[in-house]
Amino acid sequence: MSALAFVELDEGKVKKSSLEAVTYANAVAGDATAIVFGSMDDGQADLIGSAGASKVLHVTDEKLASPNIMAYASAIAEAMNGGYDQLILAKSSLGDPVSARVAIKTNAALAANVSEPLSGDVAKTSIYTGKAFANTKLNGNRKVISIKKNAVEIKTDGGSASVEAFSPTINNGDFKAKVTSTEKATGDVLLPEADIVVSGGRGLKGPENWGMIEELAKTLGAATACSKPVSDMDWRPHHEHVGQTGIKVSPTLYIAVGISGAIQHLAGVNSSKYIVVINKDLEAPFFKAADYGVVGDAFEVVPKLTEAIKAQQG
């Protein structure tokens, strides 16, 4: 049994979620090969190696340098046909559509939102927006598995990975969709990648008050997020909104400030390992889903918390 892990780069650097995919592939198959597209910064193959891959298939064709769902799916399917019966990837805006297309191309069974290592042919998948799990049996002998953040802890003691060039066939039919431009925040911790998320709700009264949220996030190396009304009112960008209709996150720590904890909000954050709730109303439903709670005015509590963390960090 051998497994291929699709590794995504963000500005030349391997995404953390992709290292989880590498470790997961190593855990299910005993060894892993990574497939990477485009130019990698120095030292990235070493990271992939420590996470558990012994080989990197590196695609350097100019036509595939930037993400292309159809063409990446074709290339990955071709790589799988070279002797891999499993593909592991991290849930993302690129990984999701690629996984579906690869599953069809390779006749593989696909499990998405997988939250822990396989047990035999059974994947534990998160369903009903985090409100339940399904133990899903994958039929047949080929599998595509898309994992949620924190499905495994990234290995750091693997070996080194050899890098091998891989030149897949280029099909013109795969270029029916093209990206004309991209708009992207730089420098911030990407929300789905973050171990810690600091999130603000309508209780913060207005976008001008987000400074203290950003300060707390910066102190913790965290990403910022928000509730739906906050992005609906354009206080924050849409890609920060978590919940039923937004991003689903599963960080190790989620700090909710001035968010009531409506069921649709909880749906996006209920698989966080730990939840801290800061709310002035003791009756806020979010406290029922919290591990730690603080009843108080966010405008006083948040700066104090930031100070206390800074003091600890020295």
């Binding site: 799990f133 730690y292 005015d297």
Partner: peptide, 29 residues
């Protein structure tokens, strides 16, 4: 179908919230 569900599970219940005084953020940290 390519997959079949063996059974469903609900997430484990939270063990309950620990409240921390708003004046004592050192304790939360």
């Amino acid at each position: 179908p390519a997959t079949t569900v063996d059974n469903f599970e609900l997430p484990p219940a939270k063990k309950g919230v620990t409240m921390v005084d708003a004046e004592n953020m050192d304790e939360l940290v």
